[in-house]
Simulated scan of single mutants.
Amino acid sequence: MVNQRLRELKPAVRERIKIVLIPTSRQDMDHLNKNIKNYNLNIEIAQEKPFLDLLHEIKPVLYLSTNSHNVKEAIGAGFGAATMFLGDYDNHSAEVLRVAFDGDGVLFSDESERVYKEKGLQAFFQNERDQEGTSLALVRMVV
């Protein structure tokens, strides 16, 4: 739906968001294929290959998984990755996509966090005071 809406707003824009699923079993693959066809979803299913080979082939901007081992492996290989936690979400929406990011190092520079880690809390506070009137350096996100 996001890609469809982007095309409506800017017809010259090609697909901006690509979703590739990496199934963990043959049974998952069969079930996923059935649902993708049933709901006419624009989702790819990765072929069976070693996990890191798949990531190097797909070159994801963001890899999300409930498998923390795979997330650590992805990060170690230089990919942006995060562990997803399963939960019972009450506010489902068919019209709104809600994504939240931690700002430091995702949306803007992580300079203050680096100062804190290298020099401690007092240096962090001083850096924040020193940089109060300075605009944050944005991290370039390609959507």
Rank of each mutant, 00 (worst) to 15 (best):
P11Q: 03
A12V: 10
V13I: 13
V13L: 15
V13S: 15
R14P: 05
R14G: 13
R14L: 04
E15Y: 02
E15M: 13
E15C: 13
R16M: 12
R16Y: 02
I17V: 15
I17L: 15
K18A: 06
I19W: 06
L21T: 07
I22V: 13
P23V: 05
P23R: 05
T24L: 07
T24H: 11
T24M: 08
S25H: 04
Q27R: 12
D28V: 01
M29H: 03
M29Q: 12
N33L: 02
N33S: 06
K34Y: 09
N35P: 00
I36Y: 01
K37F: 01
K37Q: 09
Y39F: 14
N40R: 15
N40F: 08
N40P: 01
N40Y: 12
L41I: 08
I43L: 05
I43T: 14
E44C: 05
I45G: 02
A46L: 02
Q47M: 03
K49M: 12
K49D: 11
K49Q: 14
K49L: 11
L52N: 14
L52Q: 09
L52H: 12
D53V: 10
D53P: 01
D53Y: 09
L54C: 09
I58C: 13
K59W: 00
V61M: 08
V61F: 12
S65C: 12
T66D: 06
T66F: 07
N67H: 08
N67E: 08
S68D: 14
H69K: 15
N70T: 07
V71A: 06
V71I: 14
K72C: 04
E73N: 14
E73V: 03
A74S: 14
A74E: 03
I75P: 01
I75V: 15
A77C: 01
F79Y: 10
F79I: 03
G80R: 13
G80Q: 09
L86S: 10
G87F: 09
D88C: 11
Y89Q: 08
Y89V: 05
Y89P: 03
D90T: 12
D90F: 11
N91Y: 06
H92L: 13
S93V: 04
A94G: 10
A94T: 15
E95Y: 11
E95H: 11
L97F: 15
V99P: 00
A100Q: 12
A100R: 10
D102G: 07
G105N: 04
V106M: 09
V106C: 09
L107C: 11
E111N: 11
E111C: 03
E111Q: 13
E111V: 04
E113L: 06
E113P: 01
R114A: 08
V115C: 03
V115M: 07
Y116P: 00
K117C: 02
G120R: 06
L121C: 01
A123E: 15
F124H: 13
F125C: 05
F125G: 00
E128D: 02
D130H: 04
E132F: 08
E132M: 06
T134Q: 12
